[in-house]
Amino acid sequence: MNIFRLLGDVSHLLAIIILLLKIWKTRSCAGISGKSQLLFALTYTTRYLDLVTNFVSVYNTFMKVVFLAASYATIWLIYMKFRATYDQNHDTFRIEFLLLPVTILSLVANHEFTLIEILWTWSIYLEAVAILPQLFMVSKTGEAESITSHYLFALGSYRGLYILNWIYRYYMESYYDLIAIFAGILQTVLYCDFFYLYITKVLRGQRLQLPA
């Protein structure tokens, strides 16, 4: 473990908690893409299958349980409890256009052709593009509540910090995983325009307005 990965995990945890609190406190999931949350739940489910078979550390197990529980709780809030506030008309990204290439790529580019490894690879590739429906929804509605933009900033920062973690591990532990690195860079790059808007606007107290 290193400071970059720890900060990354904390940022990730923060993002998930911000989102849960936003929906629970405002009793509304307006502006939130249910499709992205579904993809995140799929990501954690397929990645953490080794939760019971492969013990890494108490921290690792604890975080996996928290991420799984929080992602399913978020889905329950969006599609069940507060489904009346779910903005279906703006959450229209065709996720099959993500699932197909992710599935093909995970079958072609993986470390080992075993079910567990293919599912892990699938979850890595899926996570890289899982935020697209959310970013698409923000661009469609033209704006996002400030709490939603804080959520996106924390979520985007987490994988950016993981990139620093991979640089650290390459030099200090000669460890690298090209699949995670490639997907992590793509994932972080997708947030770039949002990061720009967040830094230049939201941090100055303005609303996040995307050029419609």
């Binding site: 080794d50 890494v56 470390h111 995983d177």
Partner: peptide
């Protein structure tokens, strides 16, 4: 091949 026996990252 990239040696990543077990995935120890989240």
């Amino acid at each position: 091949r990239i040696e990543s026996a077990t995935h120890d990252e989240l």
